[in-house]
């Protein structure tokens, strides 16, 4: 069996090359000065990044993406942690129902979600079409599955029921027990799901394009428009985006291991 080890290594290496190639090519393109009729670039430059980070249109697009994502994320963290907590603690009968609801966004692709949202908010009592709020709402729904999983799992890991009981026996009110005992303990889990959600939101194109595309240019819409204008600039955007995703993944990994270590210490102490 051992002698086939090299075969596995070959397969894994081939897979790595396959997966890294498009990314590597994009990176090369972003630092290439001139590259149109040769296999490798003729000369290299960092000018595209310089141009990108001084381009006020790009910076405005970054600002817009951050604004929409931040509002959706904050709304999600606040309302969902309260909801999941209350259902977990006091309304366990609703748990299956809540779980079913949180799964729906998985079955609704961006295009389908856009159809309904445009229908409801382009006419009638509330008109949100073309404003940032329709996108905030759409993004809030998009990240529900991830936020639910994260919050639910952290509540289960810290055994929130017993924590609340202990805090209340010691004289804390329900509100105080939640804010000062439960909330700090599930913060790690919430931050991890929020980071995951954030990396999904900054890569979202479809709903942004349909719901606010004309009036509110996010990073992905800007990228789409640059695609046919300036390839080098576009590749610099893609690499910048991936650097952010990479940083977020790294942060999630760090936070995750720190969180787990804490759990282990707790178990060892017990």
């Amino acid at each position: 069996m051992k002698n086939k080890r090299w075969l596995s290594l070959l397969v894994v290496s081939a897979a790595f090359i396959y997966l890294v190639l498009p990314l590597a090519a994009t990176f090369m393109y972003s630092i290439a000065k001139e590259w149109s009729h040769t296999v490798l670039p003729v000369s290299y430059t960092l000018d595209w990044y310089k141009e990108l980070f001084t381009d006020s249109r790009f910076l405005a697009a970054v600002g817009r993406t951050l604004t929409v994502s931040a509002i959706a994320l904050i709304a999600s963290v606040v309302t969902m942690s309260v909801t999941v907590f209350v259902v977990y603690m006091y309304l366990p009968k609703l748990e299956r129902f809540l779980q079913a609801i949180t799964m729906i966004p998985f079955a609704v692709p961006g295009v389908v979600a856009a159809v309904g949202l445009i229908k409801v908010y382009s006419s009638g009592p509330i008109v949100l079409s073309g404003t940032i709020w329709i996108l905030v709402g759409a993004y809030y729904v998009l990240i529900i599955p991830y936020m639910y999983q994260g919050i639910r799992n952290s509540l289960r890991t810290i055994d929130a029921r017993r924590l609340m009981e202990a805090a209340e026996i010691l004289g804390a009110s329900k509100m105080k027990a939640f804010l000062q005992v439960v909330a700090p303990n599930i913060m790690g889990g919430i931050i991890i799901s929020a980071l995951l959600s954030f990396s999904i939101l900054i890569g979202e194109f479809v709903m942004a394009n349909f719901l606010v595309g004309g009036s509110y240019e996010t990073i992905q819409i800007y990228l789409m428009r640059q695609l046919n204008q300036n390839g080098h600039l576009s590749s610099a955007i893609v690499i910048a985006y991936f650097t952010i995703v990479l940083m977020i993944s790294w942060l999630m990994l760090k936070l995750g291991t720190r969180f787990n270590k804490k759990e282990e210490n707790k178990e060892n102490a017990a």
């Binding site: 894994v12 897979a15 790595f16 997966l19 890294v20 190639l21 498009p22 990314l23 090519a25 994009t26 393109y29 990396s199 890569g203 194109f205 479809v206 992905q220 990228l223 789409m224 695609l227 390839g231 576009s234 590749s235 893609v238 985006y241 991936f242 995703v245 990479l246 993944s249 990994l253």
Partner: peptide, 24 residues
């Protein structure tokens, strides 16, 4: 490493992916 790397590249879709394949 491979799992982390797969996780990273699973974000590679949509507009950026189409663009990378145009380069290739």
């Amino acid at each position: 490493f491979m799992i982390t790397f797969s996780n990273l590249t699973s974000n590679f879709s949509g507009v950026p992916l189409a663009f990378a394949f145009i380069i290739l």
